[in-house]
Computed example of a mutant assay.
Amino acid sequence: MSQENLAKTRWLVVADVVTAALVGVAQAAERAISIRGEFHIVLAGGNTPKALYERLTNLETDWSCWHIWYGDERCLPADDINRNSHMATQAWLANCPIPATHIHTIHAERGAEIAAADYAEQLQQVEMFDLVLLGLGEDGHTASLFPDQFDPDNPAAAIAVHNAPKPPADRVSLTVRCLNGTRAALFLVTGAGKRDAVAAWQRGDPIPAAAIAVKTGVDVLLEPVCVKENV
């Protein structure tokens, strides 16, 4: 991770990550819709984003302007409960009037290679995201970009991931380059198990999460238990 990237990373320790993220998403949506008439958001998987999505159902906004994208997906049947798209649908998308044509699913059930190529083509519809939501794994991974397996300079938009250290082994992920094509990036980090990954990031270790670099800077929402003392 470059010192420039590290300097543009804002570590925001908050009592309630979900509430803080809700405010961030609402503000980003309002700004994008008022300026450009549409809001392109990239979703993350995981329990903390799920809690956020459940609360987004009650957001007062013009849902017709929203476009939903996914940062990664697992190569499982479309209705598998471990799919990110399934989780987001059940927690939120099935309960709000975002047009179906604005929900851009990764069809990972077709296989990683085919799904990655298909999603790369879909991504040509958007010049730049307005907000990318991301999580942080205990090993420092984000989306399905894992240590020792990702290329921060890959020019593609979406890639097939094989031999992932977490099941399932086959996945589809947006690349660093694609994720960095956003006006704002927001990490949601909860749990004491993330302390080592956060410390590595703050030291400047080259973990995948640290490769996310946005011109406006990256915001990392952290629970107090995620931060080691004297780091």
Rank of each mutant, 00 (worst) to 15 (best):
L133C: 08
A210G: 14
A108Y: 07
L22T: 10
A44H: 05
A32Y: 09
D205W: 02
A91M: 02
P206S: 10
D151W: 14
R31E: 15
L133G: 04
R10W: 03
Q90D: 11
G191N: 02
W66A: 11
T61S: 08
M87F: 00
V18Y: 15
R36G: 05
A108D: 12
V17P: 08
I114Q: 05
H107E: 15
T175C: 09
E60N: 05
A116G: 10
A117Y: 01
V18E: 14
A156G: 04
T182D: 12
I33H: 12
G217S: 09
Q90K: 13
I159V: 15
G204T: 10
I106F: 03
T101N: 10
A213N: 13
A94T: 00
K166I: 02
G140Y: 04
M87G: 02
V25W: 09
D16G: 06
A115T: 04
S64Y: 13
G71W: 00
L12E: 15
M1H: 15
N47K: 15
V14G: 14
C65N: 14
H40L: 01
G135F: 11
F129L: 01
K166V: 01
T190P: 01
V14I: 10
D151P: 14
A169C: 07
I103N: 08
L134D: 11
V172E: 03
V231F: 04
A120G: 06
A112W: 00
L133R: 02
A156N: 11
P147D: 06
Y119Q: 07
I41L: 13
H141Y: 01
V198C: 13
P165G: 03
Q27M: 07
A91V: 00
A158Q: 02
P168N: 07
V132A: 09
G140E: 09
A15L: 10
I159C: 07
E38T: 13
T61C: 10
V176K: 09
G111A: 08
I41M: 15
E223T: 07
I207V: 15
P224N: 07
R83Y: 04
P208R: 04
R183H: 14
Y53P: 03
N84G: 00
G46L: 08
I35T: 14
N180S: 07
A7Q: 12
K215E: 14
E60A: 03
I98H: 02
Q122F: 02
F39Y: 13
